[in-house]
Design a protein around this nucleic acid. Structure first.
Lengths: 187, 187
DNA sequence: TCTTATTGGTCAAGTCACTTGACCAATAAG
DNA sequence: CTTATTGGTCAAGTGACTTGACCAATAAGA
């Protein structure tokens, strides 16, 4: 039937979930009421442009993001994904991690990302809420979960709650591709 | 430090989430109190073997499942995954779908599965709660979401809320491999 | 002009799913 | 015959979200 689109409300909710915020947290920072945000995310009201501006600023997205790519955002094609260099890691240094944004951007519950990692370096040890699941497409990955080291080869997969301290690194000098999916920090 | 294991409570909660049940639903069917189930899933009490039996019956799992594979369940190796032929579809017929259980079995929030589909046939049209995300590893997949048909090739990915009517089929006579992840019916 | 809507928003009560603490019966132990 | 311990219930509490009643400000009609 109609074009498969995602409403502004859905996109806003996703953006909030990705940042692990509750409605009341967002309401605090945006300086509006929790109730209004609830209605907004359920597409029962439309915000003023001023308010929308404050919201996207807090959620680190953009207004155009909310309106663009409404159509055909269901599928994202190989080679057409946007590459995000992970912030505060300079390319070619540290973990050397690039994130190919999968269909997730602007959507709902999944914080799904497709990671391409160039060799060398190591992530720090990470602890947070949510859960992680991954599948190694190419290359090798050393995954450390709760003090146990796993050496992963293509076709291997993993799953763990994000609150288990975890880190990873690419032990080779070749690129490693991992399909990495995680739930938002809070559910 | 300690072995990365998943508690019985976590496994029970996962099994329940996968079936989209609330604590009160399970309590109804098992004929025990909601409060007790809550404590059970948070590992604050231990159930009698009788009660545990009734619970795993409703959740369609097994007691041994709850205790086994406690260790090293973080990682599942290529070629070592259990194959589940989707129930009420006879192999070689219909969608011809096999599910390679990924690390998900016995775990928490993700209903993550690794699907291997032999050629031919078609899934029906599916509508439910939750969300779906997939990545085509090999072969081709025709995905229909909300009336729109997408032809997917390796490297393509998709995302949609499960309440959009969706179906899929393999238009070729070769096997298609999709890494298919979905959130539980209710969050 | 003075109604009369409509829009953008607040506030407090309600709801839903889950959690927690108080309590209780039945078996075990001293 | 006390006194714990275990397995369990019940009802009140909690956290996050939703909803309905209401209100001020701008717009529109007669």
């Amino acid at each position: 039937m109609g074009d498969p689109t995602f409403s502004i409300g859905m996109k806003l909710r996703h953006a909030r979930k990705i940042k692990g915020m509750r409605l009341c947290d967002l309401a605090d920072q945006v300086e509006c009421s929790e109730g209004f945000l609830s209605k907004l995310e359920n597409d029962r009201v439309k915000p003023s442009l001023q308010l929308l501006h404050r919201i996207v600023a807090v959620l680190e997205t953009s207004i155009s993001n909310l309106f663009s790519e409404s159509n055909d955002s269901i599928v994202s094609r190989a080679g057409t994904r946007q590459v995000l260099h992970t912030s505060n890691i300079r390319p070619g240094e540290g973990v050397g991690l690039e994130t190919l944004v999968s269909p997730s951007a602007g959507h709902l519950l999944f914080g799904a990302i497709h990671i391409v990692r160039a060799g060398g370096g190591s992530s720090g040890t990470i602890v947070h809420e949510g859960e992680e699941l991954g599948y190694v497409l190419e290359g090798e990955l050393d995954l450390n979960v709760d003090g146990v080291e796993y050496h992963l080869m293509p076709g291997d997969s993993f799953f763990f709650p994000s609150k288990m301290p975890h880190g990873y690194r690419n032990p080779t000098d070749k690129e490693t591709k991992v399909l990495w999916v995680n739930t938002p920090p809070t559910f």
